[in-house]
Amino acid sequence: MTLTIVPVSLREASTFITEHHRHHLPPQGMKFALGVASHGLLVGVAVVGRPVARHLDDRATLEVTRSCTDGTRNANSKLYGAAWRATRALGYHRLITYTEAGETGVSLRAVGFRPVKDLAPHPGWDRPNRRRKAPTRAVARIRWELSTQNHRPPTAQSPAALDSSPCGTTIAARTTALDGRDQLVHGEITGQRTNSSLPMISP
């Protein structure tokens, strides 16, 4: 079976995840998304964004926030491999993701990911000063990562630094319509619509 990496929009990835993912809803935003197709039929998607955990958002790391297939053999490893190559091409040095405890992670190991931390069930990101919807499933997880030798461990940074690109320059908060459906905001793509562009914000 021939598997081919194909581009997908956030809307297309979200639709696929809604239809096929066992226990997660689509993410709210992304840096980029990838699809994998077999004979012209989309059989899997991966969505990559900034790390959800703020202490891992060190300007050199991205996270595969969703990886979802219809069960096609080798589709997951194909997506993870492509996600890593795209991550490196964008100038980042580490890619992380999570599996539930008990899952083998065979697709991750095939690409070179290694398990780095066992995590207890997380109650969610809801805080008094930052309200979030509680997760429907709090389960133990394993964090996996793949990194280059140039990656440095996360260090404390100011909020302004966290909004900059890997090379240290500020990403302008310009909103641009993509395919008439998605937007680019602070370097993140969201599924909102727009009919106009916001002005550039000076660094």
Rank of each mutant, 00 (worst) to 15 (best):
L41T: 14
P51E: 14
L56A: 05
T169E: 08
V64K: 01
A86I: 02
V111R: 15
E100G: 13
D163Q: 10
V48S: 07
A138V: 07
S38M: 08
T99C: 07
L25H: 03
M30E: 13
W144I: 09
L108P: 04
E103D: 15
R50P: 05
G187E: 04
R109I: 11
T176E: 14
L198M: 08
A89D: 15
R54I: 15
P203E: 10
L79M: 08
R174Y: 00
H39E: 05
V139M: 08
H23D: 02
V139Y: 07
R137A: 09
D58C: 05
E63A: 07
P166I: 10
A75I: 00
G124A: 03
R132I: 06
R85P: 07
L119I: 07
T136S: 05
L34S: 08
D163K: 13
W125I: 10
L42S: 14
S77V: 00
H20R: 09
H55A: 11
V52T: 08
T65Q: 07
R85D: 04
G187M: 04
R85Y: 12
G40S: 06
G71D: 02
G191Y: 01
P199N: 00
A53K: 13
P135R: 11
L146F: 12
S147F: 06
S77P: 08
H21M: 11
V185Q: 10
L90D: 14
L79W: 01
W144N: 12
L119V: 14
V36I: 04
K78N: 03
L184T: 15
P159R: 05
A177E: 01
L162M: 11
P153T: 02
L62V: 00
H55M: 06
H39R: 13
R181T: 15
F16G: 10
V185S: 14
A13N: 01
A86K: 02
H55P: 06
G29M: 02
Q192M: 14
H20Y: 11
F113R: 06
N76F: 13
E19N: 09
L90R: 14
R137P: 03
E12N: 03
Y92C: 03
H39G: 04
P27K: 11
L146N: 02
A173C: 07
P159N: 12
D182S: 01
A160G: 15
V36N: 05
I17A: 05
V64Q: 11
A177Q: 09
L79D: 00
T169W: 15
K117P: 10
H186Y: 14
A46F: 08
L146R: 11
A160C: 00
V106W: 14
R193K: 04
S165P: 06
S107A: 08
A86G: 12
L79H: 08
G35P: 03
D57V: 00
R132A: 09
A83R: 03
L34D: 14
T176V: 12
P166Q: 11
N195T: 13
V47F: 02
F113I: 01
I171E: 13
G187W: 13
R131V: 03
L146V: 11
P203Q: 07
A60W: 09
A82Y: 00
G71F: 05
R50G: 09
S14E: 05
A46D: 13
A60N: 13
H151V: 04
H93V: 11
K133R: 06
G191W: 14
W125L: 07
L56M: 01
L10V: 04
L108I: 07
S202H: 06
A173M: 12
